[in-house]
């Protein structure tokens, strides 16, 4: 089974747009998924300057996929689906 990697952007834009509230994920994810998912912070993922008119920060990267306007619920929902799909 492949390990899922979650990276939470802690670049300036993401941080002020709410990624500081995502820090709870560092506790929730290991509790919920054990070693099936690893979660770590990341320096600027570079997404904030790529987006079109309005920034969709904060960004979270799950494997190769970027999640814009990330919230704890949004990230957990995607992880639930991925973990189920992996099994």
């Amino acid at each position: 089974m492949k390990n899922i990697e979650v990276k939470i952007c802690s670049g300036t834009t993401c941080f002020v747009m709410g990624s500081s509230f995502l820090s709870e994920l560092y506790e929730i994810i290991p509790q919920k998924y054990g070693d099936r998912v690893t979660v770590k912070p990341s320096l600027c993922l570079g997404q904030c300057s790529n987006s079109d008119k309005h920034s969709k920060a904060p960004y979270v990267k799950i494997d190769e996929e970027y999640i814009s306007e990330a919230t704890i619920e949004k990230v957990l929902n995607i992880l639930d689906k991925k973990v189920c799909g992996n099994e």
């Binding site: 802690s10 560092y26 912070p41 990341s42 320096l43 600027c44």
Partner: peptide, 22 residues
């Protein structure tokens, strides 16, 4: 962050963010 990414990219260094101080 961007500066750190730049230095890492140009000099082939690895960045390890620390979760504890967040």
């Amino acid at each position: 962050g961007t500066t750190a990414n730049l230095v890492a990219r140009e000099l082939n260094l690895e960045i390890q963010p620390d979760t504890n101080l967040n």
